[in-house]
Structures are given as structure tokens and as C-alpha cells.
Simulated assay, not measured.
Amino acid sequence: MKLDTKLETDGDRSVARLYLIGALNSDTAPEFETILEGVLAKGLKVNVLDMRDLDYISSAGLRVIFKAAKQATAAHQRLAASHRKPHIEKVFEILKALPDMAVFANDQELDDYLDAMQARSLEG
């Protein structure tokens, strides 16, 4: 799958909204990282990742988001995620529950786990 993005900015309110459409994985994460760095470079106070059309996220995508969140904090900006689908929300819940604990042997093991959790959430 590919990832498309669409950016809307509101300079008056100092808000950028970046829509993610498709899959954020190891294939799409490098380009997304460049796009997100450009959004943060605009210097707006709030940067929203709108995930209503994000169908999948892998550990590579999560790394880009967490790196950007640190960069935003350092620049006195906020990075927020909105409209997370239940299976995407589940991934964030898992990582929030284990913020400083490495429980996977490697990235592939983590991605396999995240795949299974997202698939289970989609099934119901």
C-alpha cells in the first residue's frame, strides 16, 4: 500500500492538519518523515495528524511520529493525532502501556505483533 498526504494550514489559528491516507509502513515512512519535517518547519503551534483514512501503521511509521513529537516539543509546538480508527488506536494503546519497555526481539517481531493486533481489531 502507498501513503498519500494532504496538508491544510490555518495561519490565523497557527494550526496545520496533515491528512494521512493509506499505509504508514517501512516503505512509506521515509517520505512521510520528510513531509512531516516540512510541516513542523512551518513553525505553527499545533500540528495535527488526521488519521481518519489511515488504514495501517507499522513500527517504522510509529518511529517517525514519535521522533516528530520530540522535535515538536523541543520547538514549543504540539503534535497531535486525531480520528484514529480502532485498530490504529489499539497500536497506540499498546505502546502507551509499555513506553520504556522493549518486549520485541526486533522490528519484524514488533511489526508481526502490530499486524495481528490491527487485524484482530478490524475483525471485531
Rank of each mutant, 00 (worst) to 15 (best):
A97L: 11
K42N: 07
D4F: 15
V46I: 12
H87G: 07
P99Q: 11
P86F: 09
F92T: 08
L24A: 06
E37M: 08
K90H: 14
A81N: 08
G11R: 11
Y113L: 11
Q77G: 01
R63P: 00
L18S: 01
S121D: 12
T73A: 10
N106S: 07
G61W: 01
V48N: 00
L54G: 03
R17T: 09
K6H: 13
R17K: 14
T34L: 12
K90M: 13
M1W: 11
E8I: 12
D50K: 02
I65F: 02
Y113S: 08
A23V: 05
A80Q: 09
R120S: 13
K2F: 14
D10V: 04
A80V: 11
L24E: 02
R84N: 13
L44S: 02
N25K: 04
F32D: 01
D112I: 01
V64H: 00
R84M: 15
Q118N: 09
D27M: 11
K45Q: 10
V39T: 08
V64W: 01
M101W: 12
S26R: 12
L24D: 00
L40C: 09
Y19A: 06
S26A: 15
E33Y: 04
E109N: 07
F92K: 06
P30L: 03
N106K: 04
A69Y: 08
V48H: 00
A60S: 15
Q71D: 10
A68H: 05
V103R: 15
S58C: 04
V48L: 03
E33G: 13
Q108C: 06
S82V: 03
Y19P: 00
L62S: 01
H83D: 10
K67V: 09
V39M: 06
I94L: 13
S26L: 10
L110S: 03
A80G: 05
L54V: 09
Y56S: 05
L79W: 01
A16H: 02
F104I: 04
A81I: 09
E109F: 00
S14V: 03
P30C: 03
L3E: 02
V64A: 06
Y56Q: 07
P86Q: 15
V39A: 04
